[in-house]
Design a protein around this nucleic acid. Structure first.
Lengths: 347, 347
DNA sequence: TTGAAAGCGTTACCAC
DNA sequence: GTGGTAACGCTTTCAA
């Protein structure tokens, strides 16, 4: 292994000088800098990350606590992870993956052993047991999600409540008066994942706000569950013409089932989804949808937490405004059977 | 921060003694060991991972190069990552996530800077440009996948060719004589991802081996593509009664499309999928399927590479035997129009 | 069974 | 503008 002293010797300077030309933390004459760079290239010197971390008190790494469970939103999780990893690399940091299962202990471990400089926690629950512990950590943290009480820990997420309201608003403005929300699997609500709870709350609030009839259901990621929920609801509420789907993995099933039952989209039923754009576009009908801006959120989480690390930022809670993209799955409800009534009344 | 010397002072021993009670690398009298453990607990001492890494020449971390792109098999990728992370933790190692985009440079970086002790590379291509570089690394590597030439680098994967053959064999033995394979998106074949190429090769070999007619098609992850490919094939080959699907994201669409066209599964068409079991089970028909044993492969990859790190193992290539689980999507083809012919022949 | 001390490869402070 | 040299917090050899 080539060390900094090897480079120093080769360039005829001291080790500290080599360190300084690398870090730029003090001015070096162009001539020696050039010489040092030459030696570095010639010898193929690579700074030893372990020694750098120990001496500089910076690991140049952040921990990412990710829910790697089988879930309905795996692609979204993956996009968060990818975005965070890329953003971290762009700022010269690496990402240490910590599984959700490690829980509180995992956070204690990576922080207590100074493995990383900061931590990003995904899939936060409304009353997440990790939050109190995050406040005691010596390293900064940011959560992707929006718990009930962030207790001074930075958070960032899509405004899920706003997203649900936006979906309902869109349908309501088109004239739909009865709307059903097909939600995430029940386990997601049971563990009170903030993204799902917030979306549901937004849906319920929007119901009042826009004076529409509204019902919501958890849906398991299966054809069976999708079919049952949809059939049961439509049997009880045949007046329903609007659907809000917050469950990526059943989109195809919902559309198939609607087709099976003779409902056309958007002529008979309008549908708004919360899902990645590519999923929305690749269905039998291009779906009007709200996207989770995973790339933005992942990158912002990294920026926020590194800002805390170097002291250039303070804790904050960011909520990203949802954007609805209108495609082909939403339209005004058809004018009911009015024309016929008119005719029978004519004579 | 509590250091090892703090503990040593508190326990009235030397730092080396503390180190040895922690590592167990030399015998310590039970009395002092007890005293040291007490001090550790009392002071809340956590060894500094950076210092440990530097002094012991072990980072206790492995790099995992994962394709975090949007792809058709995101859930499988995620399961590999989760399995590797858990296996690593079980062996007291952490996982550093390296994105596929970092490519060769990423491997050079984490290895050259001694960030990690070993590397696991996923989604290997047939002639992967990273292989020659892996051979030059100072740290061991294993690839998840099965390239054309592993050049002495350990590999592990499901026997994808065998999986395809198994699928065809199952259909052939049921009596199907014309089989279509709906494969991964074309981009996967273009970049020559080993898993897809191997599966296709196995399919083509099985065609001959079991003397069946066989055609394969790449399918994009969309309703549109699924529909087009299926309709085009069935129009040209109405005799097809067997389907092999190597593309998780279109399973629902395939079944929906078959239903739309009036084909019953398995009465008219039998279908074998290569996909996670939960996906197979949650379709409108429970699918006969071959699973990728992600947990086994991920754990084995970690075991193999850590075995190389501590010198207790040698490079090897492992291929895991595929297992087919019969569910409700496969049956013998219906007896064609034979009965009618018999009757016309009777008189 | 235990202690002292020399590294591990950098960084950054203190001199000049 | 540059060099010397303590740290950084631990592991491990050498001695006792």
């Amino acid at each position: 292994m080539v060390t900094i002293s090897d480079v120093a010797d080769h360039a005829g300077v001291s080790a500290s000088t080599v360190s300084y030309v690398l870090s730029g933390k003090r001015s070096i004459s162009e001539s020696t800098a050039e010489r040092v760079r030459g030696s570095i290239a010639e010898l193929g010197y690579r700074p030893n990350a372990r020694a750098v971390a120990l001496a500089s008190r910076r690991a140049n790494a952040i921990a990412l606590v990710a829910p790697l469970r089988a879930d309905n939103n795996v692609p979204v999780i993956m996009q968060f992870v990818a975005a965070a990893a890329m953003a971290a690399r762009a700022r010269n940091h690496d990402v240490l993956l910590v599984t959700q299962e490690e829980g509180v202990a995992g956070l204690e471990r990576v922080s207590g052993s100074s493995l990383v400089d900061a931590v990003i926690v995904m899939d936060v629950e409304i009353a997440d047991r990790r939050i109190p512990m995050l406040t005691t950590l010596e390293i900064p943290a940011v959560m992707i999600g929006h718990p009930g009480h962030s207790q001074g820990i930075s958070t960032i997420d899509l405004d899920m409540a706003g997203a649900a309201e936006l979906a309902v608003q869109h349908l309501a403005e088109l004239g739909h008066r009865s709307i059903a929300m097909l939600g995430s699997p029940s386990a997601v609500y049971e563990r009170k994942s903030s993204y799902a709870i917030r979306f549901r709350e937004g849906f319920e609030r929007a119901r009042t706000e826009f004076a529409v009839e509204g019902h919501w259901y958890p849906v398991e990621p299966s054809y069976q569950s999708t079919r049952e929920v949809l059939q049961a609801h439509l049997a009880q509420h045949p007046e329903t013409t609007g659907l809000v789907v917050h469950n990526e993995s059943i989109l195809g099933e919902v559309l198939a089932e609607l087709a099976d039952e003779g409902f056309r989209v958007p002529e008979d039923v309008s549908l708004v989804a919360l899902c990645p754009p590519d999923l929305a576009v690749n269905q039998r009908v291009a779906l009007t949808s709200i996207a989770v801006p995973t790339a933005d959120i992942g990158a912002a989480a990294v920026d926020m937490v590194l800002g805390l690390v170097d002291g250039t930022a303070h804790a904050e809670s960011r909520l990203i405004t949802p954007v609805l993209t209108i495609r082909s799955s939403t339209a005004g409800p058809r004018p009911a059977v009015q024309p016929l009534d008119d005719e029978t009344r004519t004579p």
